[in-house]
Amino acid sequence: MNKVLTLKQFQDLALEMISLEPHVEVTAENFNMGDEEKGIEKVAEVYGFSRHSKPGYEIIFDWVAKGNLDGFLIDMFDFTIEPYKKSDFCPIFKGAVVLDDYKEPFEGHEIAQKILELIKPEQWTKWIVEYLPEPRMLVEMED
């Protein structure tokens, strides 16, 4: 039998879970210095996911960190982190059905929206920063 939560129970659970350190994984990095003469765009992106969990429940954020491309090389490592929709919605909540005031289940995209309204970006992005590359990764040591 599926677990059932009221909206208030879900909100309390989500706030508790987001305060726990998540499992964070970087799944892809894409850095390119670009070349205006050849029409190659400058790119600085890191993709990954964060899984906040308690026994029986998970909130999963797929995310993309985009570097600032307006300045110099060092600026490419000034990242802005935002949800990345690999599926129909992000973030994803697993573990229970959440009911509205009329005892109807919320759809996945509605739960994703509730999470984004409830949880401030810095509450879930603060864990990701340490997994992002630093400028020294591009500097190759010469012998």
Rank of each mutant, 00 (worst) to 15 (best):
F72N: 11
K94N: 15
D100F: 01
E104M: 10
L69W: 02
K38C: 00
T6W: 05
S87V: 09
A14T: 11
G95Y: 07
D100P: 03
A44V: 06
A96M: 06
V43I: 15
I18F: 08
S87F: 15
E21Q: 15
M17I: 12
F10T: 04
G67R: 01
F77Q: 01
P105H: 06
L20R: 14
K8M: 04
D88Q: 10
K38R: 13
D70A: 13
F72P: 00
G56T: 07
D35R: 05
L5S: 00
K103V: 01
I59G: 07
F72G: 02
K85F: 14
I18Q: 08
N2M: 14
A14D: 10
F10N: 07
M33S: 12
F106R: 01
M17G: 07
N2Y: 13
F31I: 04
F77M: 03
M33N: 03
Y102H: 12
E16T: 14
I81R: 07
G108N: 09
G34R: 00
G39N: 00
Y47T: 00
N30I: 10
D78S: 12
F106P: 03
D78T: 11
M17Y: 09
E104V: 08
V46W: 08
A14L: 10
S87G: 14
P83G: 05
E107A: 13
G39P: 01
V97I: 15
V4M: 06
L20N: 13
D88F: 10
F61K: 09
Y57T: 05
G108M: 06
I81Y: 00
F93K: 02
L13Q: 11
V43Q: 07
E104W: 01
W63G: 05
F106L: 08
T27I: 09
L69S: 05
M17H: 05
F61C: 09
G39V: 03
E21Y: 03
K66H: 02
K3T: 08
V43S: 04
L15Q: 14
T27N: 06
G39T: 02
E16G: 09
K42H: 02
I40L: 10
I92F: 09
C90L: 00
L7T: 04
Y57E: 04
H23R: 15
P55F: 13
S50E: 07
K103H: 10
S19C: 10
L5H: 04
G108W: 04
F106Y: 14
D35I: 00
Q9T: 03
K8R: 13
